[in-house]
């Protein structure tokens, strides 16, 4: 088999291009998606092939063009719209939350809303609190919309293809640090072999990134890579962590999580999103409700409940890293309870 390594951005673009060739109804709208090719390279080169009719630069009018995406999806098209940074959801949440996610239900299933909203997430490069958030849970909380978050190029392509072919609205979140951008740090593990031909990655199946018997680390996105770094360190100390990549939050592969935790008896959940009311809580609740026998109370490592600061030492302090994850894993192995903070 031929090996071909692609960045996550290139993998996403390839999926979009292949689906656009195949299906006239697919088109792209968003800010700077045309000649610029997407601020985070998510539409590089598409304008050249498909032209301005199908790759549409928009004004800075998210309420309108995301709302237009909903209307187009209900009128025979399959739009992909880009919300440049997830942080900008504030100006268009109605189109996302109250229209795209609810119209299928409100129409009693008579209408579907086949659209993809793709958006960049994540921090770690001093862009401060209006341009660095993850907000996984904000979107996953709402019924009616699928929420997906690839951690590598293989999944990025397959999940984009699945998203475009899905008859439901799919919120496709990609982390800036995984895109393979030429102008910021990158996580090498995110650039992977990607088959040329179209393929899908099904939603609702965790990816087991590392097998282990001592504890289960459940995570997603950038933190998959940080957790793998931590697992490597732990392994040198004789602790074998299993690392699960959730990949999709809606649908959520609860069975996949339970299978692993039943095997290891220990759970650590890692998320770059805010700690409270989030993914970490949902995973721990899932395990608690299942009554799985545990060797120790579960733990979580997540972003503290603070807006994201600009200054480097402040931001780096708040961001979970491999050391934070490893040290939480150590405490978990010792069975030490977590300190409860306000």
């Amino acid at each position: 088999m031929s090996e071909r390594r692609l960045t996550m951005a290139k993998a996403m673009v390839e999926a979009i291009a292949q689906e656009m060739r195949d299906d006239e109804r697919v088109f792209v709208m968003g800010e700077d998606v045309g000649p610029y090719g997407g601020i985070f390279d998510s539409t590089q080169g598409l304008l050249d092939e498909f032209g301005t009719e199908r790759i549409r630069d928009t004004p800075i009018s998210e309420t309108s063009f995301i709302g237009a995406g909903v209307g187009a999806a209900m009128s025979g098209m399959r739009p992909i719209v880009e919300l440049m940074f997830v942080d900008f959801f504030g100006v268009c949440m109605d189109a996302i939350y109250n229209l795209s996610a609810k119209n299928t239900y409100f129409s009693g299933g008579n209408w579907s809303v086949p659209m993809v909203i793709m958006t960049a997430t994540g921090g770690g490069y001093s862009d401060a609190g209006q341009h660095s958030q993850c907000l996984h849970a904000t979107f996953a909380h709402l019924p009616g919309m699928k929420v997906v978050h690839p951690s590598n190029a293989y999944d990025a392509k397959g999940m984009m293809t699945t998203a475009i072919r899905d008859d439901n609205p799919v919120f496709y979140m990609f982390h800036k640090g995984l895109q393979g951008l030429g102008w910021m740090w990158n996580v090498p593990g995110a650039t992977t072999n990607v088959p040329k031909e179209p393929y899908t990655v099904p939603f609702g199946e965790v990816g087991v990134r590392r097998e282990g018997s001592d504890l289960t680390i459940v995570t997603l996105g950038l933190m998959v890579h940080r957790s793998l770094d931590a697992a490597k360190k732990l392994s040198e100390e004789g602790i074998e962590a299993e690392v699960l990549d959730l990949r999709t939050l809606v649908p959520l592969d609860r069975e996949g999580v339970l299978r692993s935790v039943e095997k290891t008896g220990r759970l650590l959940v890692v998320d770059e999103d805010y700690k409270s009311y989030g993914v970490t809580a949902e995973i721990i609740a899932t395990v608690a409700e299942a009554g799985t026998t545990m060797h120790a109370p579960p733990k979580r490592v997540a972003y503290p409940d603070i807006p994201i600061p600009f200054s480097r030492p402040l931001e780096q302090f708040a961001l979970p890293d491999a050391d934070d994850i490893a040290s939480a894993a150590h405490n978990l192995m010792k069975g030490a309870p977590s300190t409860v903070t306000a």
């Binding site: 001093s126 401060a128 609190g129 209006q130 341009h131 807006p307 600061p309 600009f310 200054s311 480097r312 030492p313 402040l314």
Partner: peptide
């Protein structure tokens, strides 16, 4: 510059 002596002690940065 993200310094302690900044208007917001480094929390905001150039856009805030």
């Amino acid at each position: 510059f993200g310094k302690k002596t900044g208007l917001s002690h480094g929390k905001g940065g150039h856009m805030h």
